[in-house]
């Protein structure tokens, strides 16, 4: 799949924008709906879906369905790790997640994936069994 596919570009651009908001808002704003939405959307719709897309080339619907729980799991484990390492306060480690989103968006835009989504759809309709 060439990543200049329109859907890919639209999704990746959206994710990257939300990731930027998620990174910038906590640094710039004390408390606001923008920061709230940016943080939740930027972290929950973050790198999991894009990494899943990069690794498997599956449809975006499935990527987000699986990616969101992956992001949630990552946030939970980062949180436990920070507390257990007594490293809770010094830095905003949660911002690593939107930062990763941003990086993965760049990778996805540049990288050629094998098999276009249309081809995948065609194959699914012909052989949707296990």
């Amino acid at each position: 799949m060439k990543s200049n596919n329109r859907t890919d570009i639209a999704v990746v651009t959206g994710c990257a924008l939300v990731a930027v908001v998620a990174i910038a808002a906590p640094l710039a704003l004390t408390s606001s709906p923008v920061r709230f939405l940016g943080a939740f959307a930027g972290i929950l719709l973050g790198p999991g879906a894009i990494a899943y897309r990069l690794a498997t080339g599956r449809r975006w619907g499935e990527c987000f369905a699986i990616g969101t729980p992956l992001n949630v799991a990552a946030v939970m484990l980062i949180g436990v790790g920070l507390v257990d390492a007594h490293f809770w306060h010094p830095a905003k480690f949660e911002l690593l997640i939107p930062l990763t989103t941003f990086v993965l968006c760049g990778v996805l835009l540049r990288r050629e994936l094998r098999g276009a989504p249309e081809t995948e759809t065609e194959l699914r309709s012909q052989a949707h069994y296990y």
């Binding site: 998620a22 808002a25 906590p26 704003l29 004390t30 408390s31 606001s32 920061r35 709230f36 940016g38 943080a39 939740f40 972290i43 949630v72 946030v75 939970m76 484990l77 980062i78 949180g79 436990v80 920070l82 507390v83 905003k92 480690f93 949660e94 911002l95």
Partner: peptide, 18 residues
Amino acid sequence: WPSFFAGSALLDSAAGLK
């Protein structure tokens, strides 16, 4: 079993929730 509390606390902190 604290990972939910830790993860939610991280998100709250990022979102600026009191």
